[in-house]
C-alpha cells in the first residue's frame, strides 16, 4: 500500500506555497491515503501551539500523521511540550525509515 511523505521545510507564515503544498496532503488524507507530513527547518514554525495554521489542524482531523524534526525545534527554541494537537516529535532517522520503503512517495517543499 502506498504511503505519502510530505516534507515541509518552509514557514507557512512566510511562504504561501506551504498551504498549497499541504492542501495536496490534505486531499490525499481525505481519500483515506496514508499520509505523513514531516515539518523540518522553518516548517517547524507551523507546529507551535497557538500558531494559527488551519491546514495543519485540518490534516490532523483528516487522520494524517504529523511529525516535526526535534533538531529544528531545538534550533528555534520551540519547546516539545508546546506543540499543537497531534504533533509528534521525531528526527531524520524516522524520515529515513519512511524513505527506505519502496511504497513511500516522498515530496519535498
Amino acid at each position: 500500500m502506498s504511503q505519502y511523505l510530505f516534507i515541509e521545510s518552509q514557514d507557512p507564515f512566510e511562504d504561501k506555497g506551504a498551504e498549497a503544498y499541504l492542501a495536496t496532503a490534505l486531499e490525499l488524507s481525505k481519500r483515506n491515503e496514508s499520509v505523513t507530513v514531516f515539518f523540518v527547518e522553518n516548517g517547524a514554525h507551523a507546529v507551535r501551539n497557538g500558531a494559527q495554521v488551519p491546514i495543519r489542524d485540518a490534516l490532523h482531523s483528516a487522520g494524517a500523521r504529523l511529525k516535526v524534526d526535534g533538531f529544528a525545534l531545538r534550533e528555534r527554541g520551540i519547546k516539545a511540550d508546546g506543540l499543537a494537537a497531534g504533533i509528534e516529535v521525531g528526527g531524520v532517522d524516522d524520515m529515513v525509515d519512511l524513505l527506505a520503503s519502496p511504497d513511500t512517495k516522498a515530496i519535498w517543499h
Partner: peptide
C-alpha cells in the same frame, strides 16, 4: 540554506542504518 544541513543529516542517518 538549511536544506544542505538537512540533506547531509539524512545521508548520514541512512548510511548509519546500513542503507
Amino acid at each position: 540554506t538549511a536544506r544542505v544541513t538537512t540533506a547531509l543529516r539524512l545521508i548520514e542517518a541512512a548510511l548509519r542504518k546500513g542503507i
